[in-house]
Every structure is written in structure tokens, then in C-alpha cells.
């Protein structure tokens, strides 16, 4: 009894900014998956329409903040006829736990999804202990 899973329309969540932005335009919160494997924590953030060059990742102490900017020039001579979703920049911050090896964070982008691989610091990796 396996029913095919269907996507349902998902409303974009607008950013509830605690600080003022210097760029005009709306900001949305990118939908994010966070999962953990043996040696790393991976974050996948959906930022459709954001080009690789327009992604800004900042790490200050343990505060990781990610911003993706939309290039609105692409829409310059487009006249909207019918619209279902709004277009805006993306912004989101996370506080990393101290167990992350902040020197070796790896970022890659594919099909509008930013993937950050945060390697765990060596001393916090799971060790299996054999019972003698």
C-alpha cells in the first residue's frame, strides 16, 4: 500500500528581521534540512534563483549567517501577467555548537540548493567502545 507522495504548495516564510538590512527588498527564510552523519553535520538550504557569486556566508565566533541575493536585473523588462509567488533575497543565521571544526567548513551550490558541510571537531566524533 504505497501511495505516491505528492508535493503540496509551500508558502515562503518571510524573514522576521531583528536588525535592519542595508539592501532593499523582501527577505525570505530559506527552507533548510539539517542532518548529521558520523563525522559531519550537513545543512542544505533552498535558495532558488540565487547565483553562486551572490551567496554570502559569514562565520563570526559561533554565529553562522548565510545570505543569498537575487539579481533583479533579470526581471527588468518583464511585465508580470499572473503571479503566485513573490521573489526576494534569502537570509538565515544559525548558532553552531562548539563541537564544529570551523576551519574546515565546506560549501557547494547545485540547482538552487546551498549545501554546507560542517565537520565535527575530532574529540566529539562518536567512538564505539568494545567490551572486553
Amino acid at each position: 500500500m504505497s501511495k505516491k507522495q505528492e508535493l503540496t504548495p509551500q508558502e515562503k516564510k518571510e524573514l522576521d528581521a531583528r536588525e535592519e538590512k542595508t539592501v532593499a527588498g523582501k527577505f525570505y527564510v530559506p527552507g533548510t534540512d539539517i542532518f548529521e552523519t558520523g563525522d559531519a553535520i550537513t545543512m542544505a538550504m533552498e535558495m532558488p534563483g540565487v547565483n553562486r557569486e551572490n551567496i554570502d556566508i559569514k562565520l563570526e565566533k559561533r554565529q553562522l549567517s548565510v545570505q543569498g541575493h537575487i539579481d533583479f536585473d533579470n526581471y527588468d523588462d518583464f511585465k508580470p501577467v499572473y503571479t503566485e509567488y513573490n521573489v526576494g533575497h534569502f537570509s538565515r543565521s544559525f548558532t553552531l555548537s562548539s563541537e564544529i571544526d570551523t576551519e574546515n567548513i565546506n560549501a557547494s551550490v547545485a540547482d538552487g540548493v546551498l549545501t554546507l558541510v560542517l565537520p565535527k571537531a575530532r574529540e566529539t566524533q562518536l567512538r564505539k567502545i568494545q567490551v572486553n
Partner: peptide
């Protein structure tokens, strides 16, 4: 969406499935 083998998921906001 592929999390890879043995991954434990902390946060799942992205949807998966069919669209038509």
C-alpha cells in the same frame, strides 16, 4: 532529497515528492 546512509535528521523543512 538524499541524506545519505545512516544520517540522523535534525531538521526537515524541504519537501520531497511528485509534482504535476
Amino acid at each position: 532529497v538524499d541524506y545519505g546512509e545512516g544520517a540522523s535528521v535534525h531538521r526537515r523543512e524541504r519537501q520531497t515528492g511528485a509534482f504535476d
